[in-house]
Design a protein around this nucleic acid. Structure first.
Lengths: 330, 330
DNA sequence: TGTATATTTGCATACGAATGCAAGGCGCCA
DNA sequence: TGGCGCCTTGCATTCGTATGCAAATATACA
């Protein structure tokens, strides 16, 4: 049918103007008189014309594409982040190009997204390797890390104050009389995990306590179940467990209740991190540290567009406040 | 630095060949001798050259972009779908462009995605308006509906056998002695919801039963809580509730337990639909109807690429089997 | 060795829109 | 009426790559 093949030339012919006039009509701020603009718009409407974003991107160097890389979406925090980011990018006239990475193919993925002349890159799973970000940053593409950070100053990052968050949990546990506090870690090499654990440890130390146990579950649900079981079977059963994120905390609570027949929080208190929507559900009522996805995405988008607009803007590290949300689980 | 501005011309110059030779080297199936290919590849590597996908798309008409539209990602089923779809598209050399729609902006979104010359469209939330699909289909862009369907034959669709699934639930309830079966609906205008309800009603009728209650919760968690409360407070409290999807079923179980202090399934049985990962978690152990996301996405991608490759391929309606997964909740 | 065929190669052009440049139109003021 | 400046407009070129065509080279076969 229409074949979608309506070009600015077609519109120009129908409106009796040059192709440039059509282009200018669709370019905000270009110099066109009201009368030709009207004629062009009328013709465009009649033909159902819309500017080809690819052609436009080529000549202007503005693809309006932003790449978003995720390693997984199982952890409910990431879909929330993805949805918000996408909406805000769209609102600003950008379009998110989604890339799911696997452990082996990160290099390929980066090459692919560069092929599409993306104007920015958002990395949003905690398990992506750091030198990827550096590589893109070197190519002049703004990079924003969401919910993680790396030492290299080439990339911006938006995280909550994970250290403070971990400390809040420690203090809450101690204040409620918990003495044997264990930690279930995410991935050892993630900054997020490191900081949360450090906050917990420091917070406990302030009251003369040390970790009563620790296992790494790599941000995975099944490994979190194993870790919880091992903690509960250990020589010194903990009376409180801080889990590196909510997603794993749900697994921990499940194990404590179903496999050990114990009560949360009476027998074991559990706290998570993120405050995903599911954390407030009755089945878990999870005490957790909230990081505001609104603020995270708003900052991320602002950082991106600032760097895109003004080449002089430097990458920044944004640290958002962490809030303890006390529910029944601790 | 590099500015990413390495073009095929640069490579050609360094390799002492024409720009065409470079282009052909990077075009599978093009005619290049092994020796020039080697020279080109060496030069390309040296300069860090990669073909500009946008320019390539313009000339070849193959953007390799697939638009994916979602209305929301809260329901855990959609992130799963999104992740799988993205991975499979990537594996086939396509790239997913993500669009989140709101009730008001669907028209804008369609225009935007058309601007990017997408080669296919995946609609994956049950609440998206139907004429979107039709409009794109009319423009010659293959459209695949995931987990929903419309009457118009212009769009392909991949759904599970929702009617059969609803019936399975009815039979399971009846077999276990439930007599007062209620239904909590998704959105009234969604085919998925309609079919699941029809299956339930027919299945009950086969045993001389009628619905003991029914509320619509629009696929929303909070509305599902309200609906559950109203059912439980109603004149004839149900002994079983079929909820149109798992996401709402979790809310229903929460209300039954927390607000009414009743047990699932002893007092009220609950069944959902989708078999999202969370359904198998101990806190809910939700009996549900599984629709295989593997099969759904595999079919969706196959339908898309078939239609893209051969313009003669007709849209198809794929119906996947529905399997009852019996867990503790019913 | 010569001719016929297959393979490579470069040239030139196309894709669709944006934009610098210069020419045209208009109004303003003296 | 002439001269100056501003706003519009069209022409031509550009972005980076793919591809039809014809020329050039290599290969096959007699």
């Amino acid at each position: 049918m229409g074949k979608g093949a309506v070009t600015s030339g077609d519109v120009a012919r129908l409106a009796n103007v040059s192709q440039s006039a059509v282009s200018r009509t669709f370019t905000p701020g270009a110099s066109v008189s009201q009368s030709t603009r009207d004629r062009v718009m009328k013709a465009a409407e009649e033909l159902g014309y819309r500017p080809n974003a690819l052609a436009r991107a080529m000549i202007s160097g503005q693809s309006k594409l932003i790449a978003m890389m995720f390693a997984y979406l199982e952890n409910q925090f990431y879909p929330v982040l993805l949805e918000r980011m996408s909406r805000e990018l769209q609102a600003k006239g950008y379009h998110p190009l989604l890339f799911m990475t696997e452990s082996g193919n990160q290099d390929d993925v980066v090459k692919q997204l560069l092929d599409y002349q993306v104007q920015g890159l958002v990395l949003a799973s905690a398990t992506l390797s750091s030198d990827l970000a550096v590589r893109c940053g070197d190519l002049g593409i703004p990079v924003v890390l969401l919910n993680r950070d790396i030492d290299d100053p080439v990339a911006s990052s938006v995280t909550s104050d994970n250290f403070a968050g971990g400390k809040l949990v420690a203090e809450h546990f101690v204040k409620n009389g918990r003495r044997r506090v264990a930690y279930i870690a995410g991935a050892e090499d993630s900054s997020t995990n490191r900081d949360r654990e450090a906050g917990l440890v420091v917070g406990l130390a302030a009251h003369g306590l040390a970790l009563a146990g620790r296992f790494c579950a790599n941000y995975r649900h099944d490994e979190a179940r194993d870790a919880a079981a091992r903690l509960m079977n250990g020589p010194e059963r903990p009376d409180a467990i801080f889990v590196a994120n909510d997603y794993m905390a749900f697994a921990v609570i499940d194990v404590i209740r179903s496999e050990f027949g114990l009560r949360v929080p009476e027998d074991v208190a559990v706290a998570g991190y993120d405050d995903v929507p599911e954390a407030s559900w009755d089945a878990y009522q999870l005490t957790t540290v909230r990081q505001s996805t609104e603020d995270m995405t708003a900052h991320a988008v602002a950082l991106l567009s600032d760097q895109i607009d003004g080449a002089f803007v430097r990458p920044q590290k944004v640290l958002l406040p962490a809030t303890l949300i006390v529910r029944r689980s601790a």
